[in-house]
C-alpha cells in the first residue's frame, strides 16, 4: 500500500471514530474508551519494551502514578490541564528514577520492573493510610463522550509516536540496544541517553491514560490503580499483536478488548485465564505476534523476536 493512501485511510478512520462520539450510546462509547485506553498503553509499552528490549512487567506503575498525581491536584487546576500535568510530572520523575533503574540489564531489569511497581503501590497505600483515606471519589468528571474523545486522542498520539519512532534515527538506536547493547554503544549509540528517553516517553502517555481512567471509574483506590492486571494486559496485548512496530499492538488490543467485552463482566477470571493461555501460546509459537506473522507470511518481511 502506498504511504499516502495509508495516511488518508488512517485520517478517515480517526475522524470517523471522533464523529462517533457525537451520537453513539454509552455502551459503544465505553467499549471505544477501553479499546483506545489499551491501544495507548500497549503502544507506549512497545516504545520501551518492544523496541529497546527492556521488558517491563510493571508498566502499571506509570498508569497508577499518573492517576495519583491527577487525584492529588484534582480541583486545583482545570481538568485537562490536570491530565497534562500528571503526564509531565510522571515523565520528569521517570527521568530521575530511570537513571539508576536502566543500568540494570536483561532479566534483572524485568524482575526489577515487577518489584518497583509493587514498591510504589505500597508506598502510595501507606501514604493514603496516613492521611486516613482509603479511596477518593472523583466528582464532576467530564461526560463520557469527552473522555472518549480524549482517550481517542491519546491512542492516536501513542500510535503515531510508536510508528514514527520505529522509523526514526532514535528508533534505530533503540532497536540496536535491544539486539546488543554493548555493540550498539561501540558504533556510537548513546545508549544511556536513548534508554532514558524511551523510558520517559513510555511513561508519559500511560500516566495521562491513568488520569483519564479514574475520571471514568469515578474513584481512585491505590490497590486498583496499581493493579498488576493492567501491566499484564498491556504486555499480553502487545506481544499477541507483535511488539516491533505500531500496527502490532493495535491488532492485539482490538482482538482482546472484544474478548474482554464478552467475558469480563460475568467471568473475569475466565478472561484472565484465556489471556494467560494466549500469552503462553504466542511466546512459544508465534513470538513475533500477529503482525509479525502476517508480514512474514504475506509480505516476505522478516520481523524479529522480542
Amino acid at each position: 500500500m502506498k504511504n499516502s493512501l495509508k495516511l488518508v485511510l488512517a485520517v478517515v478512520l480517526c475522524v470517523f471514530l471522533a464523529g462517533v462520539a457525537g451520537f453513539a450510546d454509552e455502551y459503544i462509547l465505553g467499549i471505544g474508551f477501553t479499546i483506545f485506553m489499551y491501544i495507548a498503553l500497549a503502544q507506549s509499552w512497545v516504545v520501551l519494551s518492544g523496541l529497546t528490549g527492556y521488558i517491563s512487567l510493571g508498566h502499571v506503575v506509570f498508569f497508577g502514578s499518573g492517576a495519583y498525581v491527577f487525584i492529588l491536584i484534582w480541583g486545583l487546576v482545570p481538568v485537562w490541564l490536570g491530565v497534562f500535568c500528571s503526564g509531565i510530572v510522571v515523565g520528569l520523575v521517570s527521568l530521575i528514577v530511570g537513571y539508576p533503574v536502566l543500568r540494570v540489564r536483561g532479566p534483572y531489569f524485568v524482575i526489577l520492573s515487577f518489584g518497583l511497581a509493587e514498591l510504589v503501590k505500597n508506598l502510595v497505600l501507606i501514604n493514603e493510610a496516613r492521611m486516613y483515606v482509603s479511596m477518593r471519589p472523583v466528582f464532576g468528571a467530564p461526560a463520557l463522550y469527552q473522555l472518549y474523545t480524549a482517550m481517542l486522542l491519546l491512542a492516536i498520539i501513542a500510535t503515531g509516536l510508536t510508528y514514527w519512532i520505529r522509523r526514526s534515527r532514535f528508533g534505530a538506536g533503540l532497536r540496536s540496544i535491544r539486539e546488543d547493547e554493548e555493540a550498539a554503544e561501540t558504533i556510537g549509540v548513546p545508549v544511556a541517553k536513548l534508554k532514558l528517553l524511551a523510558f520517559a516517553i513510555s511513561g508519559v502517555i500511560p500516566a495521562m491514560v491513568g488520569a483519564i481512567f479514574i475520571m471514568r471509574s469515578g474513584i481512585f483506590q491505590s490497590g486498583d490503580a496499581f493493579t498488576p492486571i493492567v501491566s499484564f494486559t498491556m504486555v499480553t496485548m502487545a506481544i499477541i499483536g507483535g511488539s516491533d512496530d505500531a500496527p502490532g499492538p493495535f491488532l492485539g488490543v482490538v482482538f482482546l478488548v472484544l474478548l474482554q467485552e464478552l467475558l469480563w463482566v460475568n467471568w473475569p477470571e475466565v478472561y484472565m485465564i484465556i489471556l494467560g493461555i494466549l500469552l503462553l501460546g504466542f511466546v512459544l509459537f508465534i513470538p513475533n505476534g500477529i503482525y509479525g506473522w502476517l508480514s512474514e507470511k504475506y509480505f516476505g518481511n522478516k520481523k524479529n523476536v522480542t
Binding site: 536483561g106 504486555v235 477470571e269
Partner: peptide, 29 residues
C-alpha cells in the same frame, strides 16, 4: 527452540507471568 533460547530468561519470565495469572485465577474460580 533456538530462536526462543536466544532470549531465554526474558521469555521464561513472560511464560511464568502467564502461568501465574492462570494459576491465580483458577484458584479464585
Amino acid at each position: 527452540n533456538g530462536q526462543l533460547l536466544s532470549r531465554l530468561e526474558e521469555n521464561s519470565l513472560l511464560l511464568f507471568f502467564a502461568l501465574s495469572v492462570i494459576i491465580q485465577n483458577l484458584a479464585i474460580l
